[in-house]
Amino acid sequence: MNALIGWFKHILGRVVVRVWSWLHPTTPLPGGPRTSRQLTDNVMRTMNLVMPLKDKTAIGRARAALVIGSSLDEIYSGLDNVGTVHVARFCIVDNNLLMFSLYDGDFHTYIRDFIVTLGHAFDAVVELIEDTPPTPCWLHVDEFIEWVHRHDALQLPDSPGDLIELVAPGLTNLEDLSRYLVLQLDSNPNVQLGSYRSYPGHSVAEVREKLGVGW
């Protein structure tokens, strides 16, 4: 009986969301961090690229693993030269190639410097992805940055006030918040829910300088 109720709720939920989204078309909010005046919001920013693989078989995943694996030295050296990247990692999760990183400063500058230093290596990576951007990426830099921006997951703010401001700016009845959130997540399935920083407000260069490893 419980299974039947669960199935019924599941179906009802899908139908209700479709009706809601038909009645209230929701524009996906852009991913990545929002502009801020606070120092702590402008360093150690997060990027969560979710890039669906073209080939969703084990062969496709193996090809992605080999392309990334054969480029790692070049990618690490490039990230080092960007100078503002704390950490970066690549994963394959559920047929998506993920690149997660923590960086300082402006998103566009980060991606632009990234292309300058390792555009050649990244061209091979984006060829694995469903909606490949125009390549070579250093000749289509604006399109490439926009492509990365589109694949960067929406970042939901930590504070409830900021969450309302973001997903339901015209909210008059707090009870409607969950509906706005559902509609946004319906159009924007990949989200960052929070990010912990043990040393907020410090740049890569500051940390490296303090550790005496050069910046």
């Binding site: 402008n42 400063g105 490296r208």
Partner: peptide, 13 residues
């Protein structure tokens, strides 16, 4: 990030 954040040098951040 140069004039206002001071990202170019850790002594300026």
């Amino acid at each position: 990030d140069w004039l206002n954040l001071g990202l170019l040098d850790p002594r300026l951040l």
